[in-house]
Simulated scan of single mutants.
Amino acid sequence: MDLDLRKLRYFVAVAEHRHFGRAAEQLYITQPVLSRQIKAMEEELDCTLLVRTTRSVELTAAGKQLHTEAQGILAAVAAAVQRVHDADLGTRRLVVAFSPGLHVSEAIRAFALRHPDVETDVVPARWWEQDAPLRDGRAQVGYLRRPFDDAGLRTVPIGLDPRVACLPAAHPLAGRTELTTADLDGERMLDLPIRRTASLEEKFELIAAGHGIGLVPLSVARSYSRPDLVHLPVTDAPGLETCLVVPADRREKLLRDFLEIATATLRRS
């Protein structure tokens, strides 16, 4: 079957709002029209995507998978349209993907000083598929944190991101200045990569609510700082390598210049 992008956008709106009325308002269509389009999509895919009740809309397993896939598909289509417009206007553009918690703005500013004629943009890389923007064309270069699939990619190591234990401020261990992995024995650990459809904000909300302790990169903990959470160094937990990453077959001078500038800037910072 051919995947209808319009129906896909409709489905994403319902999946994100979990409400047909609010999704219809966002899309500027009526609720009955939206319901018919989603029903048609389920018939075309031959599977149930949503479970509707009088009070809520929940995603089935197939719906959750489609929501994950759809976000990448729609972002890749938008990036392709942008590249077409850039080609028409003769615009040079460099897009940088970045993992949660990592900051590439200083490197981009330094690059812009050398290449003021190049438009720069950024795209977030979801932590369970950090390499995706490089593979689907949304970005030409990434500032990523391992682990990720580096097949077909060229990496430039930048440094290490220490891991810290993120726990509720009321937790008995919260008053310590540092921890070891032995201190965490017997604690319920909330493995962040498990719930792929949830955001980092949701995961930190679970930690704050007492559902477990998270072992997270320090840069992520700092970026999502909140008063009801503390993060403590775990002295014997290995750090995670941070890297600049480009597709192995991309050798343009613009990319080489960015890698040179960003390597120096990020290592210094």
Rank of each mutant, 00 (worst) to 15 (best):
M1W: 13
L5D: 10
L5F: 14
R6V: 02
L8A: 07
R9L: 10
A15L: 15
A15G: 12
A24L: 10
E25H: 15
Q26I: 09
V33P: 00
V33M: 03
L34M: 09
Q37H: 14
I38K: 05
K39R: 13
E42T: 11
E43I: 04
E44S: 13
E44A: 13
D46M: 10
D46T: 05
C47S: 14
T48I: 08
T54V: 05
T60D: 11
T60R: 11
G63V: 01
Q65D: 10
L66T: 08
T68G: 12
T68D: 10
T68M: 05
E69R: 09
E69H: 07
G72F: 06
L74V: 05
A79L: 12
A80C: 09
Q82N: 14
Q82K: 14
A87Y: 03
A87M: 06
D88T: 08
L89K: 13
L89C: 11
G90R: 11
T91P: 06
L94I: 06
L94M: 05
A97K: 05
S99M: 03
L102Q: 04
L102Y: 13
E106C: 00
R109E: 12
H115A: 06
P116V: 07
P116S: 06
T120S: 13
D121F: 08
V123T: 15
V123D: 07
W128F: 09
Q130C: 05
Q130M: 12
A132K: 01
A132R: 04
A132P: 00
A132N: 01
A132M: 02
L134M: 05
V141M: 12
Y143K: 06
L144S: 11
R146Q: 15
D149Y: 08
D150T: 12
R154V: 07
T155M: 12
P157D: 14
I158R: 11
I158Q: 09
G159K: 13
V164W: 01
V164T: 02
A165G: 04
A165T: 03
A165R: 01
P168I: 06
T177Y: 11
T180L: 08
G186P: 01
R188Y: 02
M189G: 00
L190D: 08
D191P: 00
L192I: 13
I194Y: 14
R195Y: 12
R195Q: 05
S199F: 04
L200M: 11
L200A: 06
L206K: 04
L206E: 03
I207S: 01
I207Y: 07
A208S: 06
G214W: 09
V216D: 00
V216C: 00
P217I: 02
L218Y: 00
S219F: 00
S219M: 00
V220L: 13
V220K: 01
R222T: 06
R222I: 00
Y224K: 08
R226I: 03
L229K: 09
L232M: 09
V234I: 12
G239P: 02
T242E: 04
C243G: 06
L244S: 06
D249H: 15
K253W: 03
L254T: 10
L255H: 09
R256H: 09
F258K: 15
A264S: 10
R267C: 07
R268M: 02
S269P: 00
